[in-house]
Structures are given as C-alpha cells and as structure tokens.
C-alpha cells in the first residue's frame, strides 16, 4: 500500500500538468475575441455568449447529426470487419498470409496527400461523391490499423484457447464468436474509441468528398466560426470545441468501462 500512497499525489500532479492546455481550451472559450492572444491570462468577464454563438453560427445540431450518423455507421461496421480480418491473420494460416499482412501494414504508410486525388476520381466515377457511401465501403473493407490491433490481441491469446473448442467440433466462426470475442472486450473497446474518434475528428475526407450541406461538424468547426472574410473567431471556435468533444468524452467514458480483465485468459493461465 506504500506505493499506492506515493502514486496518488504523483498522478494528480501529472494529470494537472498534462491537462493545462486542455484547461486552456475551456478558459479561452470564455474570452472575448480581443483577449485571445493578449496579455491578459483570464477573461475579464466570462463570455458565455461564445457558446450561444457556437451553436447558432454553425447550425450545430444539424452537422452534429451528420457526424453522428457517419461516425456511428462507420464504427459499427469497421469494428466488426476489422476484428474478423485481424482474427484471420492471427489465428489462421493460408498461402501468402505473411505477404498479405505486410500489405496491410503498408497501407498505413501511404501518405494521404498522394491518394486524395485518385480516391476522389474513383468515387466520382462511381458517382458516390457527396454521399456517405465511401465511408461505408471503407468500413466494409476494414481498417488496416484496427486489423493490426486485433491481430496483436488475438495472437496474444494462448494457443490452447481455440484448439480446445475446435476439438469439440465447433466451426471456425463459432470458435471466433464464442471463445475469442468474449475475451477481447478491451480490444473492441479500444477499436471502437479509435474508429469513432477518427471519423468524428477528420475533416480532410469530408472536405474532399462531401458538400457543404451534408458535411460533418469537424469541417464546420474548422470553418464556420469566422468573419465574412474567412478570418477565424478563435474564442467562439473554442466554445464550439468544448461542445464538440462532449459526445466523444461520453463515448470514451462508457467504452473504457469495457477495458477490464478478460476472465478466460487469466483462468487458463492460472
């Protein structure tokens, strides 16, 4: 218990230092625009009006709905497909498996900038620009990073785990669903958090593929809080940011509860 007593003040101090910039988002969201980068550290009078502006300048509800729709449908699909693919790479063998896995890894290494134009051309030819279909199709095709994540987790399970069930005559999909999935909640929670955060936060692909009416909150956040010449109103943006991260904080808070010890894993090892 001695370590515990030492650990807690250290944790509070570390969190405080680490959260200072985050806290500053909150402080800045209550400043006047003319106080944004001035000499005054704290706002003279808290500008709650920034929050009102954040909601009205951007039609917050509408674009939040767009983001919610896009992020939720992408996340649900991509977590399922990535888990299947990651499991396949981790626990099954087939010709070219290792070469294919290097291709999965390599897909993460191609810089977006070089892919933007060709990707747009392909989706334009398919007449899928200005729709959410590209995200659905990407999700169906699994995400390389999540495939990698799931592969690492499934591969780390004891070898006996699947073998025992297979001996009992269960098919591959049943082994996956009944033996592996229940033990992989931490990985699923992490994958869900990641996938949701990416789509919610990305504004490069929405700018490339959507139009101003069906775009996401992240795009609006980066453009809507500005004067008619496009120059940013940073303090209103900060208020928008505070509102914008709330759903993600809720998702995280709920999902992180699933980051708990797997029962079977430890049981087999004991």
């Amino acid at each position: 218990m001695r370590t515990h007593a030492l650990r807690y003040p250290a944790l509070i101090l570390a969190t405080a230092i680490f959260s200072l910039p985050t806290f500053w988002v909150l402080v800045t969201s209550m400043k006047k625009q003319s106080e944004f980068a001035g000499l005054r550290l704290f706002p003279e009078v808290p500008q709650w009006v920034n929050y009102q502006l954040a909601v009205t300048l951007a039609d917050f509800g509408r674009f939040a709905t767009n983001s919610l729709l896009l992020a939720t449908s992408y996340t649900v699909i991509v977590v399922v497909t990535s888990a299947l693919v990651g499991y396949g790479f981790a626990r099954h063998r087939g010709p070219l498996r290792d070469q294919l896995f290097i291709v999965v890894l390599a897909m993460m290494m191609v810089p977006n900038v070089v892919l933007f134009v060709p990707q747009f051309v392909v989706f334009a030819k398919l007449e899928l620009t200005n729709t959410y279909w590209p995200w659905i199709l990407w999700a169906l095709g699994a995400s390389p990073l999540l495939v990698f994540l799931f592969r690492q987790f499934f591969a780390s399970f004891p070898r006996e785990l699947g073998d025992a069930a297979e001996v009992d005559g269960a098919g591959p999909l049943r082994v996956f669903l009944q033996v592996f999935v229940p033990n992989a909640w931490p990985a699923f929670a992490a994958a869900l958090i990641f996938a949701y955060t990416w789509v919610w936060g990305d504004y490069l692909y929405p700018i490339l593929l959507l139009n101003d009416a069906n775009t996401t909150l992240a795009v609006k956040l980066s453009t809507a809080y500005a004067d008619p010449h496009g120059n940013p109103l940073q303090t209103v943006t900060m208020a928008g940011v505070v509102l914008y991260v709330l759903p993600l904080v809720i998702i995280f808070f709920l999902a992180q509860r699933f980051i708990i010890k797997g029962v079977v894993t430890t049981g087999l090892r004991g």
């Binding site: 134009v117 747009f120 334009a124 700018i207 490339l208 139009n211 101003d212």
Partner: peptide
C-alpha cells in the same frame, strides 16, 4: 445550388475527374 467548400485538393481532384 450545390455548395462545395473551397479547397485546392478538391479542385484538383474535380478537374482530374
């Protein structure tokens, strides 16, 4: 009207398509 946000990448891409 369909409004698309000004973006150089998107403009390049639309011309390329």
């Amino acid at each position: 009207l369909e409004v698309v946000k000004s973006d150089l990448t998107r403009l390049y891409a639309m011309y390329a398509a």
